[in-house]
C-alpha cells in the first residue's frame, strides 16, 4: 500500500504564497547561433533569472525521459510525464521496440484478433500511421516488422495509409521512407502478397489532429483512408513529387491528402466491412480522435456514413 502521507521538511517550512511551475514549451538551450531563436530573442526576464536566481540546466531528451537512447529527442508527452511523475518510466518508443524485439507484440490479443479477422474475411489488414523514423509518434521499423510478420502468418492483403512527417525528421525527407517501404512491399508482392500503399497526406493536414483543435483534419483522413476519396495518384512517390512541383518548398507535414489508385483508376485500399485496421502510432495525443472515429458508437464530430464494420486496434 502506498503511504500517501507527505512528511514535513524540518529545515524549510514553505512560503506564504503559491509555488508555481512554469513550463516554457520547446524553449531549450541551443548553440547561440543564427538558428537559435531563444538566444536571438530579447528576454530580459529569463536573462535576469539566469544571473540572479538559482539556475541550472536539465536534461530533457533520451534516457533522462525514458526514450531508448540519447539520440532520441524529447517531446512534450514524455517531458510532462517526467515532470509530473518525478521518476522515469520507459516510454512508448522503448516499450514498442521491446515488444517487437521479444515478439510480445505479435502474441498480443489485438494482433491475433486482427490477423484472424482478415484471414477469415479476405479483406486487407490496414495500417494507418506516421511514416518516419522520428520515434516520437511512430517508427517505420515497427511497421515493417508487422508487415513481415503478417506475411509470415498468411495475411494475403495489406494496405498502408501513410502520414508524411517533416516535423520529427527533416522537412522534405518523405521519399526516403516511402522508398524504403515500397521496396519491402515490392519484395512481398514478388512472393505473391497483395500489399500496397493506399492513401496518405501530411501529418498537419490529415488525421493527426489533437485536443479537438481541428476535427476537419480527421474527417479528411476518414474520407481519404476509409472511403478512398481524394486526388488520385499511381504511387505515393508520384503524389509527393507532384505536390512539391506545385508548391516548391512545401514541408512534408503539410502535404495534401492523396489516394493511390490501381490500373483501372480504382482506389487501392478503401476500408470496407470485415477489414482490420491497425493505427501504428504509439504516442497518444494525436491518435485519440481517429481512434474515436473508428470506435465510438455515439460520434458527432462528422458524418462517418457508411461506417464500415471493422476491427480497430491502436499500437498503444
Amino acid at each position: 500500500m502506498t503511504d500517501w502521507n507527505l512528511k514535513k521538511l524540518s529545515s524549510f517550512p514553505g512560503v506564504k504564497g503559491p509555488v508555481i511551475t512554469c513550463v516554457m514549451d520547446g524553449i531549450g538551450l541551443g548553440k547561440e547561433d543564427e538558428s537559435d531563436a531563444v538566444f536571438l530573442a530579447r528576454t530580459p526576464n529569463l536573462d535576469w533569472l539566469k544571473q540572479n536566481a538559482l539556475y541550472t540546466h536539465l536534461n530533457a531528451h533520451g534516457i533522462a525521459v525514458g526514450m531508448p537512447s540519447n539520440g532520441d529527442m524529447g517531446n512534450s508527452e514524455v517531458g510532462h510525464n517526467a515532470l509530473g511523475a518525478g521518476r522515469i518510466y520507459d516510454q512508448g518508443a522503448k516499450l514498442v521496440q521491446n515488444a517487437v524485439d521479444d515478439g510480445s507484440l505479435f502474441t498480443s490479443d489485438a494482433w491475433k484478433k486482427c490477423t484472424e479477422k482478415v484471414r477469415a474475411s479476405s479483406q486487407p489488414l490496414h495500417f494507418i500511421g506516421l511514416l518516419s523514423d522520428g520515434n516520437v509518434h511512430s517508427h517505420i521499423n515497427h511497421l515493417k516488422a508487422m508487415l513481415q510478420k503478417a506475411d509470415s502468418e498468411g495475411v494475403e492483403k495489406a494496405r498502408i495509409h501513410i502520414l508524411t512527417d517533416g516535423r520529427d525528421v527533416p522537412e522534405t525527407s518523405a521519399l526516403e521512407y516511402i522508398n524504403d517501404l515500397e521496396s519491402l512491399l515490392s519484395a512481398l508482392r514478388d512472393k505473391g502478397r497483395d500489399y500496397w500503399i493506399a492513401s496518405g497526406g501530411g501529418r498537419m493536414k490529415v488525421t493527426m489532429d489533437r485536443y479537438e483543435a481541428e476535427w476537419a483534419m480527421v474527417e479528411l483522413g476518414w474520407k481519404t483512408h476509409v472511403r478512398g476519396e481524394g486526388r488520385p495518384f499511381a504511387s505515393a512517390k508520384e503524389a509527393v513529387e507532384t505536390f512539391r512541383a506545385e508548391e516548391p518548398g512545401i514541408s512534408d507535414q503539410n502535404l495534401p491528402a492523396f489516394v493511390i489508385v490501381d490500373e483501372k483508376n480504382q482506389p487501392r485500399g478503401p476500408i470496407l466491412d470485415g477489414a482490420a485496421v491497425i493505427f501504428f502510432n504509439f504516442r497518444g495525443d494525436r491518435s485519440i480522435e481517429i481512434t474515436q472515429a473508428f470506435e465510438d458508437e455515439d460520434f458527432a464530430a462528422f458524418d462517418r456514413s457508411p461506417r464500415p464494420d471493422v476491427l480497430f486496434a491502436g499500437m498503444m
Binding site: K16, G17, G30
Partner: peptide
C-alpha cells in the same frame, strides 16, 4: 509571473519540457 510571485511571497520555477525554438535551422 515574477512580479506576482514577489508580491504574493510565492516561489516560481521556470523550465521547459524539451528544446525546439533553440534550433530553427
Amino acid at each position: 509571473l515574477m512580479k506576482f510571485v514577489q508580491k504574493a511571497q510565492g516561489i516560481l520555477m521556470v523550465t521547459a519540457d524539451h528544446g525546439n525554438a533553440d534550433e530553427m535551422y
